[in-house]
Design a protein around this nucleic acid. Sequence first.
DNA 1: GTGGTCTAGACCACT
DNA 2: GTGGTCTAGACCACA
Lengths: 130, 130, 130, 130
Amino acid sequence: MFELDLRSRKSIYEQIMDNLKELIMSEKLPFGTKLPSVRDLSKQISVNPNTVQKAYRELERQGYIYTQSGMGTFVADKKGIRADDAAMTKAEQGLEDAFKQLLYLGVDFDAAKDKAVEIMNRIRKEGVVI
Amino acid sequence: MFELDLRSRKSIYEQIMDNLKELIMSEKLPFGTKLPSVRDLSKQISVNPNTVQKAYRELERQGYIYTQSGMGTFVADKKGIRADDAAMTKAEQGLEDAFKQLLYLGVDFDAAKDKAVEIMNRIRKEGVVI
Amino acid sequence: MFELDLRSRKSIYEQIMDNLKELIMSEKLPFGTKLPSVRDLSKQISVNPNTVQKAYRELERQGYIYTQSGMGTFVADKKGIRADDAAMTKAEQGLEDAFKQLLYLGVDFDAAKDKAVEIMNRIRKEGVVI
Amino acid sequence: MFELDLRSRKSIYEQIMDNLKELIMSEKLPFGTKLPSVRDLSKQISVNPNTVQKAYRELERQGYIYTQSGMGTFVADKKGIRADDAAMTKAEQGLEDAFKQLLYLGVDFDAAKDKAVEIMNRIRKEGVVI
DNA sequence: GTGGTCTAGACCACT
DNA sequence: GTGGTCTAGACCACA
């Protein structure tokens, strides 16, 4: 389904969330699709079930998926996604930090900006089609 | 000297590092400047000396400052900053992740890109003069 | 696991690092092995957990081990060790200094060289098998 | 007279000692030579007089130099040098550590040994003539 | 005075 | 349970 980098500093549940978000936003998992159960997914990616559960719970809170008792977990309509203000601010802050980091490393402003634009265009092409 | 946001998710020592990096890169603290001693800065910003030292240590490792035991800590020549390839890749990855995060939140691609450009221009104006 | 010399001039965290490096390089702790947790090792060798953590942190920075938050700390693949040029130069400088130190003490050149060769051969036999 | 690296991690008084030991052992400062006064040397190399004094005191303790009240400080006969056991052990330990460090960095045993021999021969030629 | 190391013990997020 | 961060305070060597 997707890959994790167990050696990354990013926590595992966040990696799971990001992977699923990407699949959902790119409509590789379209509205209504049944997600694997917590137990199945946890086996598939060799991760503690609690960790998967945490990812699912958080995704549900953010409106990406929903659960039907006894039936399973499903991809929600994109309209349901909460444009969580906190998450938004955090993402913007992340953008700012990453950009500054480039400048800290001695990259010239315009070069850094070009780099950023290049990355964004690549993302558009590669697939986070929305 | 600068301010901390104790409620932020960013750890204190990282905030100290980022603040100092900004002051150094903008040459508000030019090459050779003596930084406040660990103890002084810790009092100034009401933080434990160990926390300040951790920030100094890491900044030294990254080449922003250098230390003379018994004498103090000083701003290093910018040439000393390691254009660490790993750090570079990491920064680019960070940019990519942050941008994707925006898209995950349901922001339209072009809106996200505009946002990013706006942020970059703000950074340019505000002063990370290099 | 190993022993510390609390009376040594070498700081404790450095002794921990050197001991672990030796165990790793000799493959007594092969790739992937889980190291004792910070708390366990600290109890085992009667040292404060922070001190052990400092050693682990530095070993991670040097690429000998890696860490999975919440899971533990593991021996990294040797390929990960940075053949850091700076570290190399430093090691050579250390060799030079140590040798000069012998000469400063009034040891005859050939005697010092013999001593050095003897030490190197002992190291080969004793086990820093690579 | 000689140079210091203020940014080095080696303490200044040790650098002074090593420089003087080298000059003495190579007989560039032969037996009986008057050393500059603490005050003069401290000015010359822009260092706190206390630091120079500490170096002189330690050199005297080790038998490299001697002081005549009111007259100054002089280079001692090499026979007087105390083959301080502790210092000897420390030097040997340093040699061992530096060599191991090379191995840690992934250098092959024989390559490391060759390197060491090369360094020793260079030292012989370059001047620590004894 | 300076930085460097260490202890004792706390709280947090993650697995 | 795991590592990561932080506080409060101590002692040391060095300048």
